[in-house]
């Protein structure tokens, strides 16, 4: 049996229709109409112990909803979720002992208290033995540099510090599974790297299974072998990151700046975007090489500036989002 099993999982929300104006507000007091919104539709996947999986999708795709069902916060509308033999929403407190959760958007720490106090309180909440607590604090401190701000109230921490503290807090009780919902949101490059390094270490040395949602594809590239992509609540891709690169790897983007405001028509090239004389061109390197394209362009136009964007996972993902096609790959 896999560590995490998700089978035909769906979640629909009932949202009361709000009507405009005073009359509308009074009306909806008496009779409420609802619209249903499907946040997650019939998703299935399994995750083995020790895996590190990137769970991605555009805003509103259903990532957080899935994470919330896996952590027991939300009750699924239909389908099954099993995490290490437990049904999260039925056994919330038991499940809480085996998982760690970080929501990048908001802290789990006690806002007005020094950071250390939050750790001490969590020690009591999870009944962590003093010896283990000390060991963990030392290990985490080494990589995350917690000592810099242990005595600062959480509200005064910088975003990077807060995230470090939050991740350490989620791991204090030695969970088997770690859920990270946008752990690098809003962080600078250095802070991001530090967090990634820590996550990698925790996964490798402690065998903690990590499920990570993010909008930063670099997180996925640097951490995860496997990627699950969802959009509009549907599973779009589940497989190795490298496979997706191979499949769409021949797509390139060229940004050119041309003299004058000339209209552009070229074969085998699609115009993605235009900002005055700057143009974004997408092409398939198997059909036309960058060199050929440059030759062609310079023959017809005066080129002021030019860059070719290398195959970027970000572009592939955007491409996938845009295509909105079903691409479920059997692992």
């Amino acid at each position: 049996m896999s560590l995490i099993e998700v089978k035909n999982l769906s979640k629909t929300y009932r949202i009361p229709k709000r009507q405009a104006g005073m009359v509308g507000a009074l009306k909806s007091l008496i009779k409420r109409e609802y619209t249903t919104k499907t946040a997650v539709a019939n998703i299935s996947f399994t995750i083995e112990a020790g895996e590190m999986v990137g769970y991605i999708g555009p805003n509103g795709a259903g990532k957080s909803t899935t994470i919330k069902m896996l952590t027991g916060i939300l009750v699924p509308t239909s389908g099954e979720v099993v995490v290490n033999g437990l049904i999260p929403y039925k056994e919330r407190q038991k499940n809480a002992r085996q998982i760690g959760v970080v929501f990048g958007q908001r802290t789990q720490l006690w806002w007005d208290l020094p950071t250390l106090d939050s750790f001490e309180l969590l020690k009591q909440v999870y009944q962590i033995p003093s010896k283990r607590y000390k060991e963990n604090m030392e290990t985490f401190n080494e990589i995350l540099g917690l000592h810099e701000f242990l005595h600062t109230p959480v509200r005064q921490l910088s975003l990077g510090q807060r995230m470090r503290a939050d991740i350490a807090a989620a791991l204090l009780h030695d969970p088997q599974v770690l859920f990270l919902d946008e752990p690098t949101i809003g962080l600078d490059v250095v802070a991001k790297e530090r967090i990634r390094q820590f996550i990698r270490k925790i996964n490798q040395e402690r065998g903690v299974t990590v499920i990570l949602t993010t909008h930063d594809m670099a997180d996925i590239e640097k951490l995860c072998k496997r990627m699950i992509l969802i959009d509009n609540g549907k599973l779009m891709y589940d497989g190795e990151l490298s496979k997706i690169k191979e499949r769409y790897g021949s797509q390139r983007i060229m940004v050119v700046e041309l003299e004058g405001d000339t209209p552009l028509t070229l074969d085998k090239v699609t115009l993605l975007k235009e900002e005055g004389s700057r143009k974004w061109l997408k092409f398939d390197a198997r059909k036309i090489t960058p060199a050929e394209l440059i030759t062609k362009l310079s023959g017809q136009y005066e080129i002021k500036d030019l860059t070719v964007k290398d195959q970027d996972i970000e572009v592939i993902i955007r491409h996938l989002y845009e295509r909105n096609a079903k691409l479920v790959e059997n692992k």
Partner: peptide, 8 residues
């Protein structure tokens, strides 16, 4: 949410 992911 955080009140639902703790063992209390």
């Amino acid at each position: 949410d955080r009140f639902l992911v703790r063992p209390i």
